[in-house]
Structure formats: C-alpha cells, structure tokens
C-alpha cells in the first residue's frame, strides 16, 4: 500500500509539472483531453503502467489480434500490428513486458478511427507483447510471446 501511495504522489507531482508546462506555452494541449502520462510511461511494471493510463483490470479477449513475429532477431525493431474486433474502441495500448519501461505506446482513437494500429517497438528481452483495448467502457487485453535474440534497449 505504501508503494501505491508513493506512486500516487509521484503522479500528482508529475501532473503539476505538465500543467505548468502547458501554461508556459511549452506544450500545446490538443483537443483530446488525454495527455501524455509521465507516471504511466515511467512505470516499471505492466500493471502500474496500465493503471497510469486508466486501463487497469483488463479481461482477456481473443477479439484482439496481435501480429508480431514469433522470434525477433533484432529487438530494436519489432514490427507489431494490433487490431480489435469490438465496436466502439476508444484506446489501444501496446506494452512489452520484458522492457525496463513496459508501456511503449498508447493510442487514443478519434472519431471514425478503426481499432487498428501498426508500429515498431523496441524489446529488451524475450517477453510478452501485451495489447490492451478499451471499448465501450470496458477494458480488454491479449498477449503474444516474442522471443528476442538481441535486445534493443540499453547496451
């Protein structure tokens, strides 16, 4: 519990910094309310990261398709495609559980956007690629293991 409190304190501090940056005109806030979450992108575990972006408590679902190689020779570039079969998807997050900072990216889907995202991520070591989709107020997740021969973080 003490740990959670620490994380929470850190989060509120970070949020303060962001709002200062916005008022100073350093960051232009977009029309979408969601901002880059420092807590989530610095969280060291998958659960903490998901909590940071408000996608915790995901239920496993096979409607989420993750296209990723079974074996990635170069962990610096692992192509990943996530698509979801459910209607009304609002957000997609891609995490690499073996990384120092598991949350690689978080996508907020705007009006008319399909639940489809394709990108390339870095993977430090063999681990699960976790895709989390928020649709209709519910959170779903799926994962796929990717074996990494040469890590892509640090060095």
């Amino acid at each position: 519990m003490t740990m959670k409190r620490r994380v929470f304190l850190k989060g509120s501090l970070a949020a303060g910094t962001v709002s200062v940056a916005i008022s100073a005109g350093l960051l232009t806030p977009g029309p979408v309310l969601a901002t880059w979450s420092k807590t989530a992108f610095e969280a060291k575990s998958v659960d903490d990261a998901l909590q940071g972006i408000g996608l915790s408590g995901a239920a496993e679902s096979s409607d989420i398709k993750i296209k990723a190689p079974d074996i990635a020779e170069n962990g610096a570039v692992v192509p990943i495609t996530v698509s979801a079969g459910m209607d009304g998807a609002e957000a997609i997050a891609i995490l690499a559980s073996g990384n120092n900072v598991p949350l690689t990216s978080n996508y907020v889907l705007g009006n008319g956007a399909e639940p489809f995202v394709s990108t390339r991520v870095k993977m430090a070591k063999t681990g699960d690629v976790v895709a989390v989709v928020k649709a209709g107020g519910k959170v779903y997740m799926n994962k796929k293991e990717v074996k990494v021969t040469i890590g892509g973080c640090g060095g």
């Binding site: 900072v101 690689t104 907020v108 889907l109 705007g110 995202v117 390339r120 870095k122």
Partner: peptide, 10 residues
C-alpha cells in the same frame, strides 16, 4: 489519432 509514445518505440 493521438499516439502517446515512450522511448520504447523504435
């Protein structure tokens, strides 16, 4: 589309 990234993207 709004994408938030970390250093974990290639």
């Amino acid at each position: 589309m709004t994408a938030h990234w970390s250093g974990g993207i290639s």
